[in-house]
Design a binder for these strands. Structure first.
Lengths: 215, 215
DNA sequence: GTCTATACTCTGATAGAC
DNA sequence: GTCTATCAGAGTATAGAC
């Protein structure tokens, strides 16, 4: 059955992608109003002027919609982190800048951040494909640390399991505390996020190499 | 209308408290199976063999049940922390022990911890009374730090806004990462919780007073 | 006083007409 | 691709049996 005409297909698929984009936007709005787990398909359909069953043309079920948004979140965040990598700044400065971008993105996208870093939706687990994007996110941080190690600003231990675990604990701690206690605050005025630099400094201090000159 | 007989009241109120305790237990079981936000009143009623509307005799609505469990969680955790305070250990040892008990309790009570430290339930905000219990929780940590400062093991800055914020970030970070990435692991074998001591060490190092002897 | 029976509205999801 | 019709189940609320 190879009757699908290649030419006519472009417009149809394009229209489909536009509709999916509309659904995503409406779902994010709904979640920010009613909570991540409180999103209802009827509400999403109402927001874009279609009937609930029509959503099933684009997503097999509600959990698949969550998975799509989970992946979207990591795609956007990884893109932001890559674009924010300033080639002129290096070593610890690049790491500090990365931390600021990371926390800032989470506070600007609290709905996606909750979906990505907590597990607020009963029954939802990311698909293998989406999970790979979250792995890539962790690796971006590892690359920034590796550069600082290569520059001599951090000891090798920063790249150990302990080092990578502890920096993820620091980042998750700042974001988690800020989002659950003061979700609407910005980066600079957040009770917790304003200490993001100091939190990272705790980690940096632990992995700062001892000067090798004679004492 | 003061016809209520004092004698007969004891048994009735006792029976009522027992039922409430049954409901709490069933709700916790339901949440651990279907997620915190996925708990359904019909399911809770079914577990203890009554009809859903009967739950409304004990709780005005579903959110009130969440509030009751939120408060229960902090009561239990604060109790655990107070009992675990070993009067023989002091200073940094007491603080390290407190951190272990804190993280351990959260991993042993993941459902309550999620309800207490994240905001997984759309529309739920703790009542003023319950919120006070969460304040008391923060103050317990402050007391342990104050003792270490008094013993000379930590600098005064440990009790500053920065110091208190950063230690809450460290604790929340360990718990948050462990619960969302590996919820069923225990304290000792958790990918994140096994580094709880090292995470606290980052904080302790930042607030360790410099020795005052001559250099 | 306590619980049951019943009803109302909304949810996620499916089947089938057009 | 979108619709109508429909389902089982949810949370909530009220009326009434005992």
């Amino acid at each position: 059955m190879v009757l699908t005409v290649a030419d006519g297909d472009g417009r149809r698929q394009r229209r489909r992608r536009e509709t999916i984009e509309e659904i995503r936007q409406a779902a994010l709005e709904a979640m920010s109003e009613d909570g991540v787990a409180g999103m209802s398909l009827s509400d999403v359909a109402r927001r874009i002027g279609i009937r609930p069953p029509s959503l099933y043309v684009y997503f097999p079920n509600k959990l698949a919609m969550y998975d799509d948004l989970f992946a979207l979140g990591f795609r956007r965040m990884n893109e932001t982190l890559e674009q924010a990598t300033d080639p002129t700044s290096r070593g610890l400065d690049a790491l500090r800048h990365g931390m600021r971008v990371y926390v800032g993105w989470c506070l600007e996208n609290p709905v996606l951040a909750q979906l990505m870093f907590w597990r607020p939706v009963p029954g939802f687990e990311p698909s293998e494909e989406s999970y790979r994007l979250s792995i890539a996110n962790v690796e971006l941080i590892g690359v920034a640390i590796a550069k600082a190690v290569a520059a001599g600003d951090l000891s090798d231990a920063a790249l150990s399991e302990e080092g990578l675990t502890l920096i993820s604990v620091v980042g998750a701690g700042v974001v988690s505390q800020q989002l659950s206690n003061e979700p609407s605050a910005g980066f600079a005025d957040g009770r917790f996020s304003r200490y993001a630099a100091e939190a990272l400094d705790m980690w940096i201090a632990r992995y700062t190499p001892v000067p090798k000159g004679p004492r």
